[in-house]
Design a protein around this nucleic acid. Sequence first.
DNA 1: CCAGTCC
DNA 2: TCCTCTGGCTCAAGACTGG
DNA 3: TGAGCCTGAGGAC
Length: 321
Amino acid sequence: MGITKLADLIRSEAPDAVSYKDISDYTGKVIALDASVVLNQFRAATPSLSPLTGLFFRTLTFLEHDIKPVFVFDGKPPVEKTPVLERRAEAAGWSSPKRTGEGPHNSAFQAPGDAEAQCARLVRDRVVDAVASEDMDTLPFGANVLIRQLNAKKDRCGLLKLQYLVDLCILLGCDYCDKIPGLGPKKALTLIQKHRTIENVVLHINRQTYPVPLLWKYKEARKIFLDETETPAPNVVWRELDEEAVVDFLCHTKHVREERIRHRMKTFHEHRENRREERKKEEAAGRMKQTRMDYFFRVTRKRGQVRRAKREKYTNIWMNI
DNA sequence: CCAGTCC
DNA sequence: TCCTCTGGCTCAAGACTGG
DNA sequence: TGAGCCTGAGGAC
């Protein structure tokens, strides 16, 4: 799914754009998450358990680090994506995509379209500080992202640059239109570096060896990525955690052992108490300088690095402006 | 730290 | 020749606790 | 389901 090859490309061509951070580096930040992706993670990891339990634990971990999570649910995907969705549904054995979210929730809301796209726009419009995402889909949607060696020419970054990136992603293969067969990451990158736009690329490549798809909808895909629509200011409110409501829902409706939830809540409150004391000390000692963060997402573990990844649980890629 | 449980 | 794309295969994707 | 790794079949240089 998504722009899978973009991760590889960035790793090999712009390694400086990648930085590894700890979850505690994001203290005080607001972070958007694609809710369905998170839920799917838990569903895959523990099929017999309710994914909502996992979501509960992870949310508390965020809160313990003073991170405000915003869960974005999928809305109606653009029509251009239906072929992809149909293929996916067929593979999963489900007939229709399941509705995940209905209406606004506590620090959660439903996107008008793709949740990933919405997350990216929340970053772009500074509604949140970052988006935590599994794949690279959010990059072309969004925030001012710079891939260092892509603009070695010291171009001013901004929309122009984003347009190159979008065209690159379309060539790499995205969810919204076909790609040119036989054209892979390396070649796509050099072509975009040389010719900048898909229109120019098409003019200069060998049409025999790289046949352009018939009725290629790349302009539509581009439009989806570059959509300038203001993000509707979502009514996101962070309320104090309602322990009884959580217990009632998870334990009575989802049949989770009550003791597990209670215990986690207890450690949560203890943790929070410790933090308050630390804060007081910090205030006395002077204020801490916070790391600036423009973008982050989890990077996939490499095979031999499972150990290391476990330690740096929230390993991120960080992009400069 | 590892391996087993969570439902 | 070297390089690059591709397709087929495997595996692991969470969080917490007790020993 | 997707990402990593290995393979072989082409172009590219």
